[in-house]
C-alpha cells in the first residue's frame, strides 16, 4: 500500500516480551509456570504503511498487538511511538496519547454493547476523552458514519439491526473517532462472510489513503495479508521467524516455517493447486507453555539439525529489510534453502 516513499518509522518495537503466569491450586494460587505469549520480538512500522502479522492460532499475534498499544503491560522491552517510549509512560501520559493509537479488536463484532445505539457506540471514545459538546459529538458521529459507508439515519439503531459487515464498520468508525494515526487491526475480517470481507478490506484501504493511517494488520488469512500489507512478519510460538516486504516474503521465503506455511495455504486456483507440491508439516503447534528449547520450530522443522534443538537462532537482518531467525540461513549468501524438493 501507499508508502509515499517515506521511510519514517512511526512505531518501533524492541525486544518485546509478554509472559502470562499460569497459576494452580485454589488456596495458595501459586504460579506454576508461565506462557511466553510474546517472547522477544522486534520490528518497525513505517509511517503510512501496513505491516501484516501472521501465524497460527495462539502464536501471540493479538498479545503482540495489545502489548504494542500497552493494553497489556509488557513483561519487558520497549515500544517507541515516534520518539516516546510507551513502556515508560504514566497512566495519564498514556491516556493523553491514546487517541493517536487505536485498536480494532478481534472479537469486537460480538462485543458491541447490544443495549447501546450506534450513536452512543461510535461517540463513546469522544465522551470518555471529554472531547466536544453533545452537538459536536453528534456531528462527528455523522461524519464518521459517512466515512465508513453507514447511513447516518441509522444512528439510533442497535447493533443487532445491522449485518456482520455493517457491525464491523461501526467498530471501525469507533476506532477512528479520535483521529488516530496508528491502528492495530486484529483479525478485522475473519468473522465475516467472503462476500462482505472485500467491503471491509476496501474500506480499510480507502481510509488509509484518505487519512494517512498506519496499520498493524493481524490475520491468519495469508492471501488477504498479501493483498493488504506492504511488509509482513511471521510469528511462531511467541517469536518472530521472518519479516520482509511482501513480494520477497511470498515469493522467496527464507525460513522453513514461512515456506511450510505458504505451502500449506491453498490458493483459489484449481489448476495450480493440482500441480503444487505441498510441505506437510508433522504434528501440531506445541503448547506455548511448553515451547521447545533452541529454535521453537525445531520439533516440526523438516530441515532441523542438532544445533536447532539447543541454540536459539538469532533474529537478524540478512538483506536490507529482510529479517530471519534460522540457523540454516547462511549469513553471507542468505540463500534460500528450499524445503520443497528435498
Amino acid at each position: 500500500m501507499a508508502n509515499n516513499g517515506s521511510n519514517n518509522v512511526l512505531v518501533s518495537v524492541k525486544n518485546l516480551k509478554k509472559f502470562f503466569p499460569i497459576k494452580q491450586g485454589f488456596i495458595f494460587n501459586r504460579q506454576v509456570t508461565q506462557v511466553k505469549a510474546v517472547n522477544d520480538i522486534s520490528f518497525e512500522i513505517k509511517q503510512g504503511e501496513t505491516l501484516g502479522l501472521v501465524g497460527e492460532s495462539g502464536c501471540g499475534k493479538s498479545t503482540t498487538g495489545r502489548a504494542v498499544l500497552q493494553l497489556h503491560k509488557p513483561t519487558s522491552g520497549h515500544v517507541f511511538y515516534e520518539d516516546q517510549d510507551l513502556t515508560t509512560l504514566s497512566e495519564g501520559e498514556l491516556r493523553a496519547l491514546r487517541p493517536k493509537i487505536q485498536m480494532i479488536f478481534q472479537d469486537s463484532i460480538a462485543s458491541l454493547n447490544p443495549r447501546h445505539s450506534v450513536r452512543k457506540i461510535i461517540g463513546e471514545p469522544l465522551v470518555i476523552h471529554n472531547i466536544g459538546t453533545a452537538k459536536t459529538i453528534h456531528n462527528r458521529v455523522v461524519e464518521l458514519m459517512e466515512l465508513v459507508g453507514l447511513n447516518p439515519k441509522w444512528m439510533k439503531r442497535f447493533p443487532h439491526e445491522f449485518s456482520g459487515g455493517q457491525r464491523q464498520r461501526i467498530n471501525i468508525a469507533r476506532a477512528l473517532a479520535l483521529n488516530p494515526r496508528f491502528v492495530v487491526c486484529d483479525e478485522p475480517i475473519s468473522a465475516l462472510d467472503v462476500s462482505i470481507q472485500a467491503q471491509v478490506v476496501n474500506l480499510l484501504k480507502d481510509l488509509q489513503q484518505q487519512l494517512g493511517l498506519t496499520y498493524l494488520f493481524i490475520a491468519h488469512d495469508l492471501s488477504m495479508v498479501q493483498y493488504l500489507s506492504d511488509r509482513v512478519a511471521v510469528m511462531y510460538l511467541g517469536k518472530a521467524m521472518e519479516l520482509a516486504d511482501k513480494q520477497t516474503l511470498f515469493k522467496e521465503p527464507l525460513h522453513p516455517y514461512t515456506q511450510s506455511l505458504m505451502s500449506a495455504v491453498p490458493l483459489p486456483q484449481p489448476k495450480l493447486e493440482r500441480k503444487r507440491k505441498r510441505i506437510i508439516l508433522q504434528g501440531e503447534v506445541p503448547s506455548p507453555s511448553k515451547a521447545p528449547n533452541g529454535c521453537v520450530f525445531h520439533t516440526r522443522c523438516p530441515l532441523a539439525i542438532d544445533r536447532c534443538a539447543k541454540v536459539i537462532p538469532e533474529y537478524r537482518q540478512v538483506h536490507p529489510d529482510h529479517f530471519v531467525a534460522c540457523h540454516l540461513v547462511d549469513d553471507q549468501q542468505s540463500s534460500i534453502i528450499k524445503v520443497i524438493g528435498r
Binding site: M1, V194, S195, I196, Q197, A198, Q199, V201, N202, K205, S223, M224, Q226, Y227, L228, L267, P268, Q269
Partner: peptide, 15 residues
C-alpha cells in the same frame, strides 16, 4: 477474494 485474479493492492477487490 485476492488470489484469483487480483494479487496486488493496486487492484481493488470488488465487493
Amino acid at each position: 477474494i485476492p488470489g484469483v485474479t487480483k494479487m496486488g493492492a493496486e487492484e481493488r477487490l470488488e465487493s
